[in-house]
Simulated scan of single mutants.
Amino acid sequence: MPKIVDRRQRRDEVAAALWRLAYREGWGAVSLRKVAAEAGLSLGSVQHYFAGMDDLLDFAVGGVLDALDERLADQLATLDDPRHAHETVLRVLRSMIPGVVEDPSAEPVPDTVWQTQVMAWLTVVAKAVQIPEMSARLSAGSGRLAEAIAAAIRLSAPRRPLDDTLRDARGLLSLVEGLLLQLARRDIGPAEASAVIGRFTAAVFTP
């Protein structure tokens, strides 16, 4: 009896292989044949799921966008009830940095994992520059998150003007994006990025 393969799962596996290969060898070395080998599949098997590299990249980028949307929904849900506003915002911002481990007793995330995640995020951002719909999707998500963070900031400082809290929230998100670029260049690691976020978040919440 032939083995039944979940189509979505197999496509996700191939997309993951694409990101690993691109991180390890650079985009110039990526080909459908090499992606197939990375995924442990034949070229023909991969071609059964994807028409070519453009089709595969579009699917892989879409997967990252879906993951970002899912994470955004989780973050907004967390900020809906910010009883401990400072700690909640800090946790949300740190969750945006691949490789940050909040629990000191937990195993650290392997370098190759978080570095690949950062590269995937940067690829999506670069692609969004060329695709207005994708850019609008990212901007809308960032705007909703900034408004939620601003609302949390106002809980700790009710008299602070709305415009100021929104600027602070956007500043914190810009800080995270800048740290992601430094992570991509390997100028810093997740632990240092986490410490920087802690310092600037504390400054925003200091009366």
Results as ranks from 00 to 15, higher is better:
residue 101 V to I: 06
residue 72 L to Q: 15
residue 131 I to T: 13
residue 132 P to I: 05
residue 88 T to D: 14
residue 54 D to E: 09
residue 178 G to R: 00
residue 19 W to F: 14
residue 133 E to L: 08
residue 120 A to N: 07
residue 133 E to M: 08
residue 79 L to D: 10
residue 97 I to W: 01
residue 102 E to N: 14
residue 189 G to R: 03
residue 14 V to I: 14
residue 61 V to S: 11
residue 47 Q to W: 11
residue 181 L to M: 07
residue 29 A to Y: 07
residue 40 G to M: 14
residue 128 A to C: 09
residue 134 M to F: 04
residue 178 G to L: 00
residue 29 A to R: 11
residue 29 A to K: 11
residue 195 A to S: 09
residue 71 R to L: 12
residue 55 D to I: 05
residue 179 L to W: 01
residue 166 L to Y: 11
residue 60 A to D: 08
residue 181 L to S: 10
residue 118 V to M: 08
residue 98 P to F: 03
residue 141 G to D: 08
residue 75 Q to W: 09
residue 35 V to W: 10
residue 180 L to R: 15
residue 34 K to R: 15
residue 73 A to K: 13
residue 147 E to I: 02
residue 22 A to S: 13
residue 17 A to N: 11
residue 152 A to L: 05
residue 141 G to E: 03
residue 195 A to D: 09
residue 172 L to W: 06
residue 31 S to K: 01
residue 108 P to W: 07
residue 121 W to M: 12
residue 41 L to K: 04
residue 70 E to A: 15
residue 28 G to V: 00
residue 203 A to Y: 04
residue 74 D to W: 08
residue 48 H to L: 10
residue 168 D to R: 00
residue 124 V to R: 11
residue 153 I to V: 15
residue 59 F to K: 11
residue 65 L to A: 11
residue 124 V to W: 06
residue 134 M to L: 15
residue 65 L to V: 08
residue 119 M to S: 13
residue 94 R to K: 13
residue 191 A to I: 00
residue 137 R to W: 03
residue 162 L to H: 13
residue 142 S to G: 13
residue 33 R to P: 01
residue 4 I to A: 15
residue 48 H to N: 12
residue 24 R to D: 10
residue 183 L to T: 02
residue 18 L to S: 04
residue 171 G to T: 04
residue 164 D to G: 04
residue 185 R to L: 12
residue 185 R to Y: 09
residue 24 R to M: 04
residue 173 L to S: 08
residue 129 V to C: 00
residue 112 T to G: 13
residue 53 M to H: 14
residue 187 D to W: 01
residue 79 L to P: 02
residue 43 L to K: 14
residue 168 D to T: 01
residue 125 V to L: 10
residue 19 W to Q: 12
residue 201 T to I: 02
residue 130 Q to N: 06
residue 202 A to D: 13
residue 108 P to C: 07
residue 22 A to Q: 15
residue 55 D to G: 04
